[in-house]
Each structure stands twice: as C-alpha cells, then as structure tokens.
Simulated scan of single mutants.
Amino acid sequence: MVRKPARTVAPARAAVPDLGALLAEVAKGDHDAFAAVYDAVAGPVLGLVRSVLRDPAQSEEVAQEVLLDVWRQAARYRPERGSAMAWVMTMAHRRAVDRVRSAQASSDRERRAALLDRTPPFDEVTEQVETRLEREQVRRCVGSLTPRQRESVTLAYYRGLTYREVAQLLSLPLGTVKTRLRDGLIRLRDCLGVTG
C-alpha cells in the first residue's frame, strides 16, 4: 500500500483588521473598535516613538498620548490621503519629534539660566570709576560754556531754580534766559556726544 504524503495544514492567519473601517467606527465612539485599533497599532507606535526618543519611560508616555489622539481625532482620518496605519504612524512621529524639541528647548533654557547664575556680581569699583569719569566730562563740558550760559545752566540745573526764578535773580527777561539755557544745553549735548 502506497501512502500519500500527509498534507501539512498552514496555521490560520489572524485576519488583519481594516483599520480604516475601524477608525470610522472609533469616530462614532465605538469602544470595541478602538480596542481593535489599539491592539493593531500600539506595538508599531511604541517602536517608532522609542526609535526617536530612546528613553523607554518617555516613549511609553508619548505612545499613550498618540493612542489618545487616535481616539480623539479618528474623525479626521481621510482614507484618500493614505492608509490608516500611515496616518497613525505620522501622528506618532510628529508627537515624538515634538517631545525631542520640547526637551531640547527646556535644556537650552536651563543652560541659559545656569549661565546667568554664573555672571559676576555687580562690580562696584567699575561703576564708581565710570561715574567719576562721567562727572569729569560734564565738568569739562560745563567749563566750555560761555560765562553767561554757565551761569544760567548752573542756576537752573544745579540749584534747581525755575527759568522764571533764574530770570528774576539775574534781572533778565525770561526769553533771554531761555535762549541762554537752550544754547548752553545744545553745547553740552554736543560736548558730551549725546545723540538724538
């Protein structure tokens, strides 16, 4: 008796779910459809996110955010623009890249803050030297005024008198005092190198 070779039976393949149809049901609020979508995409999403972030804890967190986005945004999926898996993976990639950028921005802020902490304290000696040099320059420039301009500027700006009080004290018309002060201030500005 001749025996026929035994036929091997291929294991039954699990039916690949139609993610596009499932997303349409998820958009309607179908929890069972979401469970099926979750089972189909959770592994690939985590793998993609982990390849971008490299940190397991952050990867799990971002993958969870992506799956939450799938639940919330299922109505936005458009089959004519590509496959459902591509849509989900694009969201995952964007979310992972956003996390990397956010972490980089945070690191940059911390680095700048650390640099600010290391700036030297206020240098009082330098400030005193600069103030003294400015005073000497002002004295020199006041000395370059005509005697009448210097007298008017000194009374108005160093003694704090009003223009009217300067005019009364010098027995001059108010307009003359204003002219002397204006001309004196212009010469001071030019001498001090003040622009504007």
Rank of each mutant, 00 (worst) to 15 (best):
R164P: 02
R148K: 13
R148A: 14
A167M: 02
L145W: 09
R150H: 08
A167W: 03
Y158T: 15
R164N: 02
C141R: 00
Q168H: 11
L145R: 08
R140W: 06
Y163R: 08
Q168N: 13
G160H: 06
V166H: 01
R140K: 12
G143K: 03
Y157K: 03
R140H: 11
Y158V: 12
S152C: 12
A156K: 07
Y157F: 13
A156G: 00
P147L: 11
E165F: 01
Q168E: 14
Y163L: 11
G160A: 01
Y158D: 15
G143C: 08
R148L: 04
L161F: 02
A156P: 01
Y163W: 07
Q149V: 07
V142P: 14
T162K: 03
R140F: 04
G143P: 08
Q168C: 09
A156R: 13
P147R: 14
R139I: 15
E165T: 14
T154P: 01
L170H: 02
V166M: 11
L170M: 12
Y163M: 13
R164E: 13
C141V: 11
T154F: 07
P147H: 14
P147K: 12
L155I: 02
C141D: 09
V153N: 06
E165G: 06
R150N: 00
Q168L: 13
L161H: 04
A167E: 04
Y163Q: 04
V153A: 05
C141H: 01
A156W: 00
C141I: 02
T162D: 05
T146H: 06
R164V: 12
G160V: 04
G143D: 14
L169W: 03
R139C: 15
R150K: 07
P147G: 14
C141P: 07
P147M: 13
A156Q: 02
Y163C: 03
V166R: 02
A167Q: 02
Y157R: 11
G160P: 03
C141K: 00
Q168W: 08
R150G: 05
S152E: 06
T154A: 05
T146S: 13
T146A: 10
E151A: 10
Q168M: 11
